[in-house]
Amino acid sequence: MISENIYNIIEFDNYSITPKYIQLANSISKSIEDGDIQDDYILPSINGMAYEFDISRNTVEKAYRYLKENGFIHSVPGKGYFVKNTNTQGLIKIFLIFNKLSVHKKIIYDSFAKALGNNVIIDFYIYNNDFPLFKKLLTRRKVDYSYYVIIPHFIEDNGKAYEIINQLIPPGKLILMSQLLDNIQGDYGAIYEDFEKNIYDTLLKAIEQLKKYDKLKIIFPEYTYHPNSILKGFSRFCQDYAFDYEIINNIQTIQIEKSSVYISLMEDDLVALIKKVLESHLEVGKEVGIISYNETPIKQIILNGITTISADFQLMGKKAAEMIIKKRLENYSVPFYLTLRASL
């Protein structure tokens, strides 16, 4: 069977960061599920598909290979590619939306996708901490997804996020990652970071190293998606254990002080901090300390190792996938880890 409307069925979303070959494969598999494509349907040739959508042959080849590996199609040498499985009951469709791309977000995504395995469609979006874009992406979606997995970090208008979610996402289909939101209606899952408790507890684990210093300073930009609960936990720790402390809103305007520990939340601020520390000629780990949020491989090497406090991002992705597979939504606080290195 060949449909004259095959090219009308296939869609690419320029807002999505899902690779084009995955979008093509997802579009075909969705069409199979919707009944637009039947058993023994003959897919367009690789050249024909590439020409029609102005994409590379490699993109089409990867999409067909992906569909073949997941059992949707088969190939007959000299004849082409045929649909062989239209029994797509149970096909899970996921709308995945992150606030930004970063090394630790990739860890979450890779763990999430790996744990889900086959028979899953993931449409992946990034909204760059921008609430209007987040709202637009949710509003314009064309598919009724099985689950919506969201990391809700916004620079502004965070208070309105729950209104959009309650309006657009049916109860029982929402999974929040990294951060909780107030006023969410109905059942939902969450794999979240308890920011206030986590920074308090991890600093406490480093108490012996911190005693070498007189003052703790946290770099917390004036405009940030990080929750103020981090500052609450930080301030409470400093007060409980008699440390002088300071909140720095702009790393560019300060001078590095001896006998101080600097805690950096953002990667850009960490780079600026390291540059200033090197210019100060103070010995890292003895005269000045550095702690960075979010473990990444490069931090094992920089300055002979940077101390980090970090959530278990691999576990975060795995837990979200388990909720989907088991169809059991729950709230789970992700543990934080302190990795002590030479910078403290």
Rank of each mutant, 00 (worst) to 15 (best):
I10R: 12
I10Y: 13
F12V: 10
Y15K: 11
P19K: 10
L24G: 10
S27F: 12
Y51W: 06
V60P: 06
V60S: 09
E61N: 11
G71M: 09
G80A: 09
K84G: 07
N85G: 05
T86M: 07
F95N: 00
K100G: 00
H104Y: 15
K106E: 15
I122C: 09
I122D: 02
Y125H: 03
Y125F: 15
D130Q: 03
F131D: 02
L133Q: 13
Y145Q: 05
Y147R: 03
Y148K: 02
I150D: 00
K160Q: 06
G172N: 11
Q179M: 04
D182E: 14
N183E: 12
Q185H: 09
E196F: 00
K197I: 05
K197S: 14
I199S: 08
Y200K: 10
Y200H: 13
L203G: 09
A206R: 04
K211C: 01
Y213H: 02
P221V: 10
Y225T: 08
N228I: 06
E246A: 12
I248Y: 00
T253S: 15
Q255I: 14
S259H: 14
S264N: 11
H281T: 15
L282V: 06
K286N: 13
V288S: 07
G289E: 09
I290K: 09
E295D: 15
P297M: 03
I301S: 09
I302N: 06
N304E: 14
I306D: 08
Q314A: 11
I325A: 04
Y337P: 01
